[in-house]
Write a protein that binds this DNA or RNA. Sequence first.
RNA 1: GGGCGCGUAGCUCAGUUGGUUAGAGCGCAUCCCUGAUAAGGAUGAGGUCCCAAGUUCGAAUCUUGGCGCGCCCA
Length: 1163
Amino acid sequence: MFNPVRSNVRFPELEEQVLKFWDSREIYEKSLQARANAEKFVFYEGPPTANGLPHPGHCLTRAMKDLFPRYKTMRGFRCERKGGWDTHGLPVEVEVCKELGIHSKEEIEDFGVEPFIHRCMESVFRYTREWENLTKRLGFWIHLEDAYVTYHQSYVESVWWSLKTLFDRGLLFQGHKIVWWWAQGGTALSSGEVGQGYRTVDDPSVYVRFPLLDDAGEESDTDLLVWTTTPWTLPSNQFAAVHSDLDYAVVRDEELGRKLIVATALVEQIAGKAKRELTVESTLKGSELVGRRYRPPFDYYYKDQGQTQGELIAGGKQHVAWRVLAADFVTIDSGTGLVHEAPAFGEVDHDLLMSEQTRFQAGEGPHLICAVGPDGKFTQQASDFADRWVKEADKDICRNLRERGLLFLQEQYRHEYPFCWRADQDPLIQYPRKSWFIRTTAFKDSMLANNAKINWLPEHIREGRFGNFLEANVDWALSRERYWGTPLPIWRCQETGKMEAIGSYEELLAKPGVSGLEAWEQSKERHPNISEHLKVHKPYVDEITYDSPYAPGAHMRRVPDVIDCWYDSGAMPFAQWGYPHTGKEQFADQFPADFISEALDQTRGWFYSQLAISTLLFGDQSQDDPQRGTLKTEYPHPYRTCIVLGLMNTEWYESPDGERYLTEDECRAKHADKYTKRVGKMSKQLRNYPEPNQIFDKYGADALRWFFFANQPPWTSIVYSERSIKEVIPEFMLRLWNVYNFFVEYARIDNFNPAEELGANEAELGSYQLDGNQLVCGATARNWEDRNELDRWIISELNRTAAGVVAKMDAYENFNAAALLKEFLDALSNWYVRRSRDRFWSNEESQEKCDAYWTLYECLLTTAKLIAPFTPFIAEELWQNLACAPFGQRTRESVHLCDYPTGNTSLVDNELSERMALVREIVSLGRAARMNASLKVRQPLSEIDVVLADRTHLDWLREQDGLIRQELNVKAIDYPRAADDYISYTVTPNFPRLGPRLGKQLPQVKKALADADPATLLKQLEAAGKFVLATDGGEVELNSEDVQVRLNAREGWAAAQGSGMVVVLNTELNPELIAEGHARDIIRAVQDHRKELKLEYTDRIHVGLVTDTEEIRDAVEQFRDYIMQETLALRIDFESIENTEPTTVKIAGSDVTISIQVAVEAG
RNA sequence: GGGCGCGUAGCUCAGUUGGUUAGAGCGCAUCCCUGAUAAGGAUGAGGUCCCAAGUUCGAAUCUUGGCGCGCCCA
C-alpha cells in the first residue's frame, strides 16, 4: 500500500533522504553492476581543479555530465564514470605564493623548491571536501574514490611515455617562444599578469629608410620607408613586411633626392607629418615588392650574413634575410604599410620567421637574430650600444640613424604598454626564450580530419571556433620554466648536449650509473608522511643523473622545465589508466569517449589538448609500433560527441548607491522601486550570485538541474538566476507532485493496491519494472483499447512522449527532451486529472474507476522513469512510494535500476490527439466566451453552438459531449452547419500547397478569393468538392484542400473564435438554470467550509443553512440530492446547528449562514 | 583589428525544411475554479521579430551590408 504523501513537500529535505537511501543501498554501484556485461558508453570527466571553490558554472557542467550517463545507463549501456583532478600548473603556484606573501621565481628559490612543492601539493586538495559535497548533493554519480590525479606517479609516467614517444619521433623539439619578459627579474609573465600592468606611455615612433638593393646587390635610388615604435629592435632587423594585396606608391622626395616606397593610402598623411612634398611617380602591388632585398639600418649581422644564401626546398637558392616578405597582419591603420621585422621581439614576427624557415631545407634557412641579452641589455654584437638597457638606448639609436641620414621622421606615439605588475617602473619586453615545442603543425590536416568526425553541439563549433583555431595551428609551446608540473622527461648530456627522453621512473633507475636518488630518500626521512608520488617531481627528479652514452665520463641531467598542465589533462584518456605501464585493457576498452561536455572556454584547452595528443600519438598508422606500446585504432579522435556549454552569467539587483542584492524582493524591500536589474559575469569579489549550497537548501538540486536542462539549450549563455530556479518548483516539480499526491490520496481511500492484483507467483525478486505491459495484467486492469477516450488519449500521449524523449536524448538534445516532458505533464495535470476527477471521487466501485487508477498509475510510474536522469531525486521518491511501497522486493529497488521507457508506438493514436486537441480548443473558446459575457462557470447555461470549419471529427466530438458540457457547465452542445446569423467566413489560399503549384499566380488567386463571396464558394465546395476561380492569369480550379476556411464571429454574440471554429453561447437563463447556479454556489460554500474545518475527505456531514431568501431555499429543495452527494452530506436542514462555528457567505446577493457538523457514522 | 556567436513581448527564452493570425514561462491586469487546496486554471494587454537592401508568389527564417552585445584571439 502507498504511504501518505505530504502536500506541503519540502524538496531539499526529501533530497537529503534520497541521498541517504542511495548511499546505504549503494544504488549507484548496483546500477553499474546491472550493466556489467552490457555494451559500453564511454564518458570522460574533464578534470576540474580542486584548489578553488566550486561555483555555479561547475554545477552546470556536472549536471550535464550526470544527465547523459544516467540516461545511457537506464537505456542499457555500461557507463563507467571515473573522476579526475587537475592538479598542476601556475594557478596552484600563484595560490601558494599568495599564502607565502612572495611573488617572483627568485623568492621561490629562496624559500626553497622542496618546501614550495610540498605546499603546492597540500594546496591542491584544499577544497576537496567542498567539491565532494557539491558533487554528491547535486546527484552527480561519479567515482571520486578512484579518481585519476595528474600529479600521481602513474599519471606522470604515462605522460612521460607519451612525450618520449613524441621525442623519439622527432615531434618534440627545442625552439624559441616569444614571451613577455621581465628583464630585471629574469622571468616571463603569464598573460594574466601582463594584463594587470598596462599603462599609457609615450614611445618614439620612427620612420626609417631601408635602401633597396638592385639585382647586383648594389644600393638603388629607392628606399623602403619602414615604421616602428621600438627603435631598439632595429639592430635585430631581419625582414621588412608588406601586405600582398595593398597598393604601394613610389614617391619622389625632392629634398632627399631619392624615391620612397609607402602604401598609397598613406602618402598624403606621411607627407603632411614630414612637411615635405612627395610626388607619386608610379604604383605597384605589395606582391611585386616581395622578394626584393634591402640594406638594414645596422650591419652588425649584415656584414657577415648579408650575402648568405640557403637551399630552398622547392629548388634553387635565396638570401636568408633582409628581404621583403608578405604578411597578412600588415595594415594601413598607422605607419607606412611597411613593417620592420625583428622576429626576436614579436610573436607574429617570430611566426613569420618560422614559416620562412619551412621554405628552406633543414638548417639552410634564416636563424633568429637577437642583439639583446636576457638582462634586457644589448649584446656585444651590437657594438655601439653594448650593455645598454634597450629602452634607454632608444634615443641614441634614433640619433645614430639621424646622423647617418636614415631617419626620415620621428614623432611621439602614445599607447598602452605593459609594465611589470610587481615592479611598476620596469617595462616588459617581448623576448625569445628557449622553449620546447610539439610539432602539432605537422598534424594539422589529421587534426582537421578528426575534428570533422566529432559530433559537436552546437554544430558551428566544428567549422567555426574550433575549426578556425585548428586552421591557425602553431606548434604547441609545451615547456614552462616553473616548478609545480609534470617534469619534462628529457635528460641532456652535459658534455655533448645530446638528449634523450625517459618513459618511466623504472626506466630512469635502470640507466647506468644512476645517482642522486638520495635527495628523495633524505627527504622521506625528514618528512615520513610525504607522498610517494612526489618522487617524480621537482626538485627530486632533477637530482637524478646517469652516465652519458654519448661521451665517456659525462653525465645526463634533466632539463629544468616542467610542462604545460593542459598537456596533463589532454593525456587523460590514457594517463588515467597509467597506460601503457598499466591499464592496457582499460584503455582499449575506454577509448575513445562517446561523450564529453565542458564549457566553451575549453575549446583551446581540454578539447584541443585531447585532440592534439590523441592525433599525434595514435593517429598515424604508419608510426604504429607495438614495441612502443602505441595503440592501433581506426578512430583516433578522443571523443565522439562533445556538448560545448555556454558561459554562465548571473543576475542581481542594484540600488542607486550601488548596493547589491541577489533577489528582487530583498532589494525592493529596501529601495522601493529605485533599483536596477543587472546581468553580467559572475564575480567572487562582487558576490553577485547565490552559492550553489544556498540553492540546494532553498529549492533543491532537482530544481537547479531542471533549470539547467529545461530552460535553454545548454550551449547558450545561461543566466544563473535564483528567480528562474525558484520558478521551476511550481512549474514542474509541484505540478508533478500534486498529481502524485492526488493519486495517492485517492488510491489510499479506495484501497487501490496494484501489488495484490499482479500475481506474485510469476515474479522473481526485483523483476517487476511495472511498465505498461506488466500493469495491464492487473486483475482489474483492462486492456488499453477497452478504456475510455480520455484514458486512451493520455496513454497515447505517454507513449508518444517516451518515444520522443528517447529520440531527443539519443541526439543529446536535453532541452527538447525536457520540453516534451513539460508538455506531457501539462496534459496529465491540466486535462487528464482535471477531467478524470469524477471517477476518482465516485463512491461506488466501477470498472471506469479502476481504469482511471490503472491509467494514472501507469502514467506516474513511467513519468518517474522518464524524468529519472533529469531530476533523480523526485523520480526516486515517486518510485519508492508508487512501486517499492506496494511491491517491495518484487520490483526494482530504485528507479535508477530500471530500463528507460522507449514508448509503445502502437499505442500512439494521432487521430485521437487531434480530436482531443479540438475538444480542448472548444473548451478554451467556451471559457473565453463566458469571460467576455461575464458568465461565471458555476452558472449553468442551456446551450452552446460550436461552428466548425472542418467537420471531419464531428461524430466523434458528439460522443465527447460529456467532457465539454461538464467543463463548460452547459446542458447541450449543437454543431450547426449553417450559422450565417452569427458567423462570417473568409476563404484564403492554402499557401504551402498552392505556392509550389501556382507560383507567381498566387497573389492573383489570393485577391480573387478575397473578392469572391465566401458563402457561394463554400456551397460549391460542398456540392462539387471544388470550384473554379477566374483570375487575370486564367481560370484556376481549387478543391477543399487548396483553401483554408476561416470563421469569424459576428458582432453582438457571446462568442469566441479560434483558427477553425467559433463557439457561441446561449446566454438566456431560465429559473431552473438560475436555481442550479445557486445550488452550485452552496456546494462551493460548503466545501470551502469543510476545508476551513479541516475535515477528512471521507467525513460525512450534517449541513445547516440559514437564509431569508425564498429563492435559495427553493434551489436547495430542487437540488437537494445533488448538493448532498457532492458535499457528502447526510442531511440538510434550514436551521443552524448548535455547537458549531458557522460561516456566512453571499449567494445571489443575500446572506446564507452555513454550519457543518461531522456525522457519526450510522452503525 | 580578426574569428565565432547572439539581437524575437516588460523579463528569461522557444521558433522544425521560407508558407501569410510569430509562441511558452514569469511578471502585469481581469477573472474563474476549488474534494489536487499555503494548490490549480482561464482570458487579456503587451511585438516595426535590431536596421537597411536583395532573392522569392511569400522572409523572424535565405543573401549582403550596417548597428549593438558577448566570448575568444590579436
